[in-house]
Simulated assay, not measured.
Amino acid sequence: MFRSSLQLTLASAVLATAGIWALAASTPASAFNFNGSRVRVDATDVGQTFKATFDGKVGENQVQGLSSEATFKFLGLTTLADTTEANFEITMLNNSSGNILSRTTALGFNLTDWQGNKLDLVGVGNAGGNPSGTTRSQGQIFRRDFSGQMPNVGAVDVCFTDANACNANTANGVDNDSRTRLSNQATFTATVAFTGAVKQFALSNFGVRYENINGEGYVGASGAGEFKIPTQQKQAIPEPATVGAVLLVGMLMLSRRRFQPNSSAP
């Protein structure tokens, strides 16, 4: 009877361990590497996402309720003859609230190696279309790319917009005004092309541009949003060594119980 119970317990432990191993195999143990406002990306992050949130200002004045979010999904690296492409699916959300109406019209950021050294980009602002091996974008919004200045953020290596510059006006984007033809959320695919072979890189100095800001005393104003806090969602999974150690301890305890004398015996 005891042996059957022990066998059942051990079988349950083995099945539980197998389940944990299956979960570990199917779900990444981590996603992206954050250092303050810098986000490191490498080939192992394919399929992972992170969210950058932005506040809102007009000039130097903080505007309560003016905000946006950009969710980055990394699609992977593509190595070409003399360039490396990094591909993202980016979903922009204008979630301005309260009495504020606004339109988000550009997203910009810098690209460096993990030590902060500038990386050379290929084809930023290319007027000859979107050939392979160049920085480019396509989708519902932000189908043009430039480098330049963004208010409250400064110089950015690349921005995506439908305007003629990072800090220029455009009627496109995402807004929270139900009276317009625009949605408050839209997605585009962004490709940044680096010179040479690049295995990992970092994104930093994120910023967005706002137009048509109305409410709280503003009428048709333009402004900018600075990076706030990246959020990273990941599921904690026991390391394989930890799983094995737990199973071993359980088996030893059961074996010890098996050979202990029964204190209740006469």
Rank of each mutant, 00 (worst) to 15 (best):
T135Q: 06
R136T: 07
R136S: 11
S137K: 02
S137V: 05
Q138D: 13
Q138W: 08
Q138E: 14
Q138F: 13
Q138N: 14
G139P: 08
G139R: 07
G139S: 11
Q140E: 12
I141M: 02
I141N: 00
R143P: 02
R143Y: 09
R144W: 04
R144I: 01
D145S: 15
D145R: 02
D145H: 13
F146Q: 05
F146I: 04
S147T: 10
S147V: 04
S147A: 14
G148Q: 06
G148R: 07
G148H: 06
G148E: 03
Q149F: 10
P151C: 02
P151S: 12
P151Q: 13
P151I: 00
N152M: 04
N152S: 12
V153P: 04
V153I: 15
G154R: 12
A155Y: 14
V156C: 03
V156N: 02
V156D: 00
D157A: 11
D157H: 07
D157T: 03
V158W: 05
V158N: 02
F160I: 00
F160H: 05
T161Y: 04
T161K: 08
D162P: 09
D162L: 04
D162S: 13
D162M: 06
A163C: 10
A163S: 15
N164V: 10
N164I: 13
N164D: 13
C166A: 07
C166I: 03
C166H: 07
N167E: 12
N167D: 15
N167K: 11
N167R: 03
N167W: 03
N167A: 12
A168F: 07
N169D: 12
N169H: 09
N169M: 09
T170E: 14
A171T: 15
N172T: 12
N172Y: 10
N172L: 11
V174M: 02
V174G: 00
D175P: 06
D175R: 08
N176E: 09
N176C: 04
S178G: 13
S178N: 13
S178K: 11
S178H: 10
R179T: 15
T180E: 08
R181K: 12
R181A: 15
L182V: 08
L182E: 06
S183Y: 10
S183N: 10
S183Q: 09
S183A: 12
N184T: 15
N184L: 08
N184Y: 14
Q185H: 02
Q185C: 00
Q185W: 04
A186M: 07
A186T: 00
T187R: 09
T187F: 11
F188N: 08
F188V: 01
T189S: 13
T189G: 03
A190K: 02
A190N: 01
T191Q: 07
V192W: 01
V192K: 04
V192E: 03
V192C: 05
A193I: 07
A193R: 08
A193G: 06
T195H: 11
T195F: 08
T195A: 13
T195G: 11
A197C: 02
A197K: 15
A197G: 01
Q200N: 14
Q200A: 15
